[in-house]
Design a protein around this nucleic acid. Structure first.
Lengths: 236, 236
DNA sequence: CCTTATCAGGTCATCAGACATCTGACAACA
DNA sequence: TGTTGTCAGATGTCTGATGACCTGATAAGG
């Protein structure tokens, strides 16, 4: 049973249009200040409806890639970093996955240390609950991955810095995409569960250094498995 | 003559819908996992067309606030930091500034350490250039602030992790908003310049611990000035 | 009894068309 | 010359129609 991975859903038309426009900008085909073709013309050129163009433009407008002025037209702007962050998929394309994993690692070690310093009684209770839920789903791989991620998110909240927690959550979204391709054995699940137990212990006994060390060790393991699963970035 | 102020342009309907939905989520009226009303029903309730709802939903979907499943409906998700980044103002509204400052501090110390480990010859050259530019603008406060920030950004790039650099950059955008209200004396500018010199030294001599320590000290000073400038968060 | 087909209802995906509103340019007018 | 009228073209918005997809109930078949 199970070797049936979920079928990746193809991107919707507005998403395709979105990436197409961003590609044009990235390749310098259209430059900041340029006047984009009208929505009607774009719709004709792409062979899609005007509403699809509009949905894409609305997104581009909000993330600052274009400026839309009623009656005048749509103009390309000097974009910031939002476009990159929104389109995580581009991160894998540009080979930033290992950097994202590394960033996640640093964030998580920091969050573990902070959690050990600041966790309230309620936080520790929440961690305990999450751990118990993880234990119950040890047999079911699918839900176990979710439960495992949940533990990390609860830990992030226990660090009592919402900005850091939100940033961590953003990176984790990407991690889940990558982790989906991993094959997880029951031993690995059990091992991870044990790590979580030790983490909870360190947090509960307010030992920041231990929490950080355990987390670092915990993530090193996961990272090794990950890079072993996809052997490509080797050699110089 | 003149009492005719420009009429402020009202936000478009999809933008209003967007904020309305986000408000509902922020206020906990709808919670993660909840099933949003159908597009048709939302259109009727808000008294707008379905296409306006769709444009708003497309944005919410892309920034991870909702998950849209064809045939099933639209569901609220646990969002990351993207919604906040799109609307920075909300960070100050929700009193997250001190947390953002703390996050910036952690990120920057980490980046300084990494930079000391990984900086190439070119990176160090870029740092030197930035420092020199900062020295030239020591007399001009306005451009000096910019130059000072630039040094930190160059340092972030020298850490050779684009994801961390991106995250740092986003936080720094907010920091600039806050820093604008600070009154900067020539002594402070000179002091900061000296800190930057020491940082460059630590990086050039590949001393991660020293770089991290100097940066921590450097930011502590700035943070003290900042909290002194706006005395409000005192007492319990 | 269990499995499979089929159907109906609800929902999102997309398109086409219509009208409103805004902008800029140019013609018409005084 | 300067103001006003008009129009083309752009975005803003709404509506209706069609298709694709998911769910649950029910019927047909083994």
């Amino acid at each position: 049973m199970s070797d049936f991975r979920a079928i990746p859903k193809s991107p919707s038309i507005p998403e395709i249009v979105l990436e197409e426009i961003q590609r044009l900008i990235a390749e310098g085909k259209v430059r900041p200040g340029d006047h984009l073709p009208s929505e009607t013309e774009l719709a004709e050129r792409f062979g899609v409806g005007r509403s699809s163009i509009r949905e894409a433009m609305r997104v581009l407008q909000l993330i600052g890639v274009v400026e839309v002025i009623q009656g005048k037209g749509t103009f390309v702007r000097q974009a910031g970093i939002l476009p990159l962050m929104i389109d995580w998929s581009r991160i894998s394309q540009t080979g930033l996955i290992s950097e994202a994993m590394e960033a996640r690692q640093f964030m998580e070690v920091l969050l573990a240390r902070l959690a050990a310093e600041r966790a309230t009684h309620d936080d520790i209770e929440a961690l305990r609950r999450s751990l118990r839920q993880s234990e119950e789903s040890l047999s079911n791989m699918e839900s176990n991955v979710r439960a495992g991620v949940d533990f990390h998110l609860v830990l992030a909240d226990a660090a009592h810095n919402q900005i850091l927690a939100l940033m961590y959550r953003t990176i984790t979204d990407l991690y889940l995409e990558v982790a989906r391709r991993m094959r997880i054995t029951p031993e690995m699940a059990h091992d991870r569960f044990h790590d979580h137990e030790r983490l909870l212990e360190a947090v509960a006994s307010r030992d920041p250094q231990a929490a950080a060390d355990i987390m670092k060790d915990h993530l090193d393991k996961a990272y090794q498995i990950l890079s072993a699963g996809e052997p490509e970035t080797k050699s110089a």
